[in-house]
């Protein structure tokens, strides 16, 4: 089934316009991509900031000055810059800096893991649907249509309401939410690639399906799918935080930015700066992923070779 323009656009923020499937194995392609990226200061800065955030989350146990889960109740709600607590303390006297560092672990996990799993599952199903066409395509795509009938946040909330709170359930629900759009994109791109001349030629010359998939199709579809997936990470982070905000996501006493945002919400009239910190980090991280996704897209887009 030939997918129309509509299917490649999406409610998911960063997919702008259609994804073009074009031969990307031409020699020097990746060199070119790298070159373009090196000339794109915005993407480079975003990447640098993101690397910093990721590293600080990974090395949180080394960097954090305090235990993020144990505070001193007498030291609660100290302002940013308070002696001994660089970013203040939260409502039970836990060090904010430590909690924000540790919080990055869960927030990044809930951003990256669901997208990665959805990419593997959805990519596999979507590429299969696009590659084999016919009944395989019909079965996969019709089931996808059903899931696709739910706006993402609605589906995430419904699934989380059903499974209950906790990190694991958040990851499951977000993964389920992202599988359908990835299937759609993958199927669409694969269908386009399959009908391209050089693939047709390979098929005509008697290439076996596996070889065709491995050498002709995969290399050409992975890039656009990957670019799309990076843009979903930002959405995943915001959705995960939103779930925690509604009390459906990661549950206390875990350190997670959305949860911290929620529990500090009442402090907004008392210490706005403190209450804003987790929100700023969610925004910053999500922005970095969006900028990187944009940068990758324009760097990989061969149309710019004109």
């Amino acid at each position: 089934m030939n997918r129309s323009v509509k299917d490649t656009a999406s409610e998911f923020p960063a997919v702008a316009g259609r994804l073009n499937a074009v031969p990307s194995q031409s020699p020097g392609y990746w060199t070119l991509v790298r070159k373009r990226l090196m000339r794109d200061p915005v993407t480079l800065i975003a990447a640098a900031v993101l690397v910093l955030i990721v590293l600080s989350a990974i090395f949180a146990p080394l960097l954090a000055p305090y235990d993020p889960f144990m505070g001193k109740i007498t030291q609660r709600m100290k302002p940013v810059g308070f002696a001994g607590h660089l970013l203040g303390t939260d409502e039970t006297g836990r060090d904010m800096l430590s909690r924000l560092l540790y919080g990055g672990r869960l927030s990044l996990t809930s951003g990256i893991v669901p997208v990665a799993i959805a990419l593997a599952v959805g990519g596999f199903l979507g590429i299969s649907a696009g590659f084999f066409g016919g009944p395989v395509n019909s079965v996969i795509m019709r089931v996808t249509d059903i899931f696709y009938a739910f706006p993402s946040i609605l589906l995430a909330i419904a699934i989380c309401g059903m499974l209950g709170t906790g990190l694991f359930n958040t990851l499951v629900s977000l993964t389920l939410v992202f599988i359908p759009p990835i299937i759609r994109i993958s199927e669409s791109v694969t269908t386009q690639v399959r009908s391209l001349d050089f693939v047709e030629a390979a098929r005509a010359s008697g290439a076996r399906p596996f070889a065709l998939m491995r050498y002709q199709v995969l290399p050409n579809v992975l890039a656009p799918i990957l670019v799309y997936a990076t843009s979903l990470v930002s959405l995943a982070i915001i959705l995960a935080a939103g779930l925690s905000f509604l009390g459906l996501g990661v549950s206390a006493p875990a350190a997670e930015w959305g949860l911290m945002l929620n529990s500090l919400r009442q402090m907004i009239y008392i210490d706005p700066l403190l209450a804003a910190l987790p929100g700023v980090l969610i925004f910053l991280t999500s922005m970095c992923f969006n900028l990187i996704s944009d940068g990758l897209r324009s760097a990989m887009d061969v149309r710019l070779k004109l």
Partner: peptide, 20 residues
Amino acid sequence: EFIQQNLAEVGIDIDLETTE
């Protein structure tokens, strides 16, 4: 969380689970 801190001081290790 406050009680958890109190009990930890006397050697009671509390695993706190929250749900809605």
